[in-house]
Amino acid sequence: MILPAPCWVQSLKTWLPYIWKIKPLLDAEGDKDTNFPYKMDEDLCQRAIVSLLLALPSNDQTDILSDWMETEQVNYPDLSEAFEIWCCRTKSAKRRLMEGLDRVGNTTISLR
């Protein structure tokens, strides 16, 4: 589905707190009752959230990852993979910016 980034950001900011709260409840109920039908496919959910997160602009990723780090439920979904990729992308972008600024600073201006 093609949606603007702000819609995806809002979707993730809505669903992540829900998942953080509902997952332990579902797990606890599933432990009590082996026939409990409402189980979360952890792997599918994890991959979907990481993919959505990594498709967002860097500033939005920063906000969501900051919220994730501040929560007590950092175990699920585990966004450490997304955080590592975000760090690499940020370092790479900073390095490219610095190289670009160096090139601009080293150019000579000739007056004709």
Score class of each variant (00 low, 15 high):
G105Y: 00
F83D: 05
L101H: 00
R95Y: 05
R89W: 02
M98A: 07
G100D: 08
L97T: 05
G105S: 12
E84T: 08
N106W: 05
D78F: 11
K91H: 13
S92K: 15
E81Y: 14
D102K: 03
R95E: 13
E84Q: 09
R103K: 15
V104M: 08
T90N: 11
F83V: 05
L79V: 01
C87R: 11
E81D: 11
I109K: 06
R103A: 08
C88E: 14
C88Q: 10
D102M: 09
I85E: 07
L101N: 00
K94G: 02
A82F: 01
N106Y: 08
G100S: 12
G100L: 10
K91E: 09
A93P: 00
L79F: 01
I109T: 15
K91D: 10
D78N: 15
L79Y: 01
L101D: 00
E99V: 07
N106D: 12
M98N: 08
T90W: 08
T108L: 00
S80R: 15
C88D: 09
K94A: 04
R89I: 03
T107L: 15
A93I: 03
D78Y: 03
E84P: 03
N106E: 11
L97K: 06
S92F: 10
G100V: 04
D102H: 10
R103W: 03
I85S: 12
A93F: 04
I109Y: 11
A93L: 07
A82G: 03
F83N: 10
K94T: 03
T108Q: 01
I85G: 02
C88M: 07
R96S: 06
E81H: 13
L79T: 02
I85Y: 04
K94N: 07
T90F: 14
V104K: 06
L79I: 02
N106P: 05
M98W: 07
D78W: 06
L79C: 00
R95I: 09
C87G: 12
K91I: 09
G105Q: 02
W86F: 13
A82H: 00
